[in-house]
């Protein structure tokens, strides 16, 4: 069974990547293969990596307030490449903007209060809904 592959992207110019790193560690501990882009990944680089690495889910961390233009751009680039991958966003997202992000096509939005278990469960559920294999547990992985 194939292990779930997740791209954790840190787009934009903001350098606060505590959240991105914590989520990446949690997904890895949950048995997934995680690719972290590092800081200041461009939307183009994120879409290209998503394609090349054949990921099942893309997670984005945005704390600067620029979530809407960034999400719009990345969703458009993924669509251009014909990639049907669920995109999740976490960070400092005002509640009113959450519905707008979902309407744009973002699959799920997480605030500061989301637990790691909630995020891991959401990534698994979204990946499965998109037709990927369920994630291997660490015990059965390799």
């Amino acid at each position: 069974m194939r292990t779930l592959r997740v791209l954790v992207g840190k787009p934009g110019l903001d350098g606060h990547d505590r959240g991105a790193r914590v989520v990446a560690s949690a997904l890895r501990d949950a048995g997934m293969e995680v690719i972290y882009t590092g800081l200041r990944a461009t939307p183009e680089a994120i879409a290209k990596t998503a394609l090349q690495e054949d990921v099942d889910v893309v997670g984005l961390s945005v704390l600067s307030g620029a979530h809407e233009p960034i999400a719009r751009r990345i969703l458009a680039l993924l669509a251009e490449k014909g990639l049907d991958v669920p995109v999740l966003i976490g960070g400092v997202i005002p509640p009113a903007d959450r519905a707008r992000l979902l309407a744009l096509g973002v699959a799920a939005v997480f605030g500061q209060e989301a637990t790691l278990a909630e995020i891991v469960a959401a990534v698994r559920a979204l990946a499965v809904r998109k037709g990927a294999q369920p994630a291997a547990t660490p015990e059965t992985d390799g």
């Binding site: 934009g12 110019l13 903001d14 600067s64 307030g65 620029a66 809407e68 233009p69 960034i70």
Partner: peptide
């Protein structure tokens, strides 16, 4: 804002969407 902190002008490609935000 982040473009100013990172040495990009407001009309730079890198600054799009970030001008005057934080």
């Amino acid at each position: 804002d982040l473009p100013t902190q990172l040495g990009y002008d407001s009309d730079a490609a890198e600054a799009a969407g970030e001008v005057g935000r934080v």
